[in-house]
Each structure stands twice: as structure tokens, then as C-alpha cells.
Design a binder for these strands. Structure first.
Lengths: 136, 136
DNA sequence: ATAAACCATGGACTATAGGCCACGGTCAAA
DNA sequence: TTTGACCGTGGCCTATAGTCCATGGTTTAT
């Protein structure tokens, strides 16, 4: 099938699919015509695009996904390998969460020190809390 | 002072400071020389750069920081306002954490279904778990 | 005077994941 | 045949936060 039909079938834009082709995530074969450069997309590409969508929903980057797809092509991938990749991604996610938690706790700590907000009429440039935030 | 001294004082690279100038986060005045375009950085810029570094450690983006700095210039900022900004950032962080948790739970759910890994010699292309992940 | 350090500016580059546009040829339907 | 949809390609753009490089003039120290 051509890209338009594929786009409808997997619910991705043609531009997105072309982007994946350019990034090497999928590698469709040329069609049979000697008059045009149209690519022929098969059920293989459908499956791969379904895989990409699913992996993205797990938080994998396109680069990571491309790596896995290549391993599948070379028949290197198996359950244990995929599982390890997934567990590594979980570890990575936990790190990101920890970083975000640190941001959050920094903010909350700063807010907690703000026990007595300025009176509404306090001159703003002299507000001790604002100045404190400015590290002055 | 000139940018080299400022760079040392606030422990940021000259390129970073120039970048902030270009982005409009800080607005140093021109120096007094009629022979060059050197900018004059004062204690005001030192304070602002300290603020930027601090706000970044809370997870604020440069754009958000620029907004706050501008409000300080216009004397619009006060404790309540800053506090609300901080609380909004906390809410935003919580959303990001929730998204990451969703990724994580999706992965763990998928792994949990993988109760019986393929035997090491299982033909890889037929491994039911891999095929399942491929949404086949 | 000379060389090195300094300053400023502009532009390209990195990473990520697309989206948009122009252009030109092909294909299908009217 | 004509028109419109389709396809492919290349390049530019978005957002973010810098980093690097080239260029050219200024300042400082020898």
C-alpha cells in the first residue's frame, strides 16, 4: 500500500511516517513502478508503526525505539532482552521523578519559610521575602 | 564590571550570560567608552543572575524566569504573586510526575504479563512475548 | 610597538519530534 | 484531456538552553 493508506490505517500523519523513514525507524521497499519513486508499505511497516506508538506510550524515545527495531530485524531481540530494556527505562523514569521531586521540595521549602506574607500595601521593592528570594 | 569579572563572580560562563542578555533576561547598560561597545554589569546583574540560577534549581524555565524578572522591574511582583507562581510550578511538576508514573506503570504492567520468558533457544522471531509486544 | 587577552556580534550546531511549505512528477477520476 | 489528489524530496521552522566558532575591534601587559 501507499503512504496515504498506511497513514489512515495506523492513525499517524504522512509527515510523521516520512519522518520515521528518514530517521531510519522503518525501511519500506521501493514499489514496482519504473515511473515513480513511490514506496511500498506492507503489513511489516504496519506492525512496526504499531510497535513505535506503543513504545512511545511507555516513554521510550525514537532513538531507543529505533535500536530495538533494528535488533528485531537482526533477530537479536528476545524476551529477556526486551525486559531488561524495559526495566532500564523504569530506572530512568525513577531518576527523572526523583529530580522533579527535588524541584518540588526545593519550592515547598522556600514557601514554608514564607510564614508571614507581606502586607498588601508593603512597598514591593522592600519586601523582605522577595529580597530574600533574590539572594540578597 | 565587565563580563569576564561577572562570569567569575556568579560562576556562569560568558556565553551563558550573553545568551541571557540576548534572551532579554538581563539588560545591562552600555559602558561609558565611546570607542567600544562593552557592556557595564553592576550588582543588579549579579543579583539577577543569582536569581536565575536559583529559579532554575526549582525547575523554572528561562522563559518563566524572564517573566518574573520583568515583573520585578515593573515592581509588580510581591510575595503573594511569587508564591502563587511557585505553587503553580508545583502543580505542573506533579503533572509531569504523574505522566512519568503512567509510563512506569504501563511498562511494569507489560512486564508482569511476561511470566514465562522464552527459553534461550526459542526462535526469536516466533517468541510469543515479542510478537505480543508487536501487537500482532 | 607587539602579542595576548578581552569584548561584542552573528550564525551554526546539539538533542528531540515532528509540522509546514515549495516544487515537480505521477496517478486517478471527471 | 484536464484537474485534483497523491507521492517524494529537501529545507525551514518550532520549542529549550546553551556551546562553539569566526570575525574584527579594544584593552592590557610586556
Amino acid at each position: 500500500m501507499l503512504i496515504g493508506q498506511l497513514s489512515k490505517e495506523v492513525n499517524l500523519s504522512k509527515d510523521t511516517i516520512r519522518f520515521y523513514v528518514k530517521q531510519g525507524l522503518i525501511t519500506p521497499k521501493p514499489g514496482n513502478s519504473e515511473y515513480n519513486n513511490y514506496k511500498e508499505y506492507t503489513e511489516r511497516e504496519v506492525q512496526q508503526l504499531r510497535f513505535i506508538t506503543k513504545a512511545k506510550s511507555f516513554g521510550f524515545t525514537l532513538k531507543e525505539i529505533a535500536g530495538t527495531l533494528e535488533e528485531m530485524e537482526q533477530e537479536k531481540a528476545n524476551c529477556v532482552h526486551l525486559k531488561n530494556k524495559a526495566l532500564n527505562k523504569v530506572i530512568e523514569i525513577d531518576k527523572k521523578i526523583a529530580e522533579l521531586q527535588k524541584y518540588k521540595s526545593n519550592i515547598l521549602k522556600e514557601i514554608k519559610q514564607d510564614q508571614s506574607p507581606c502586607a498588601p500595601m508593603q512597598p514591593k521593592s522592600n519586601c523582605p521575602r522577595v529580597l530574600s528570594f533574590f539572594s540578597i
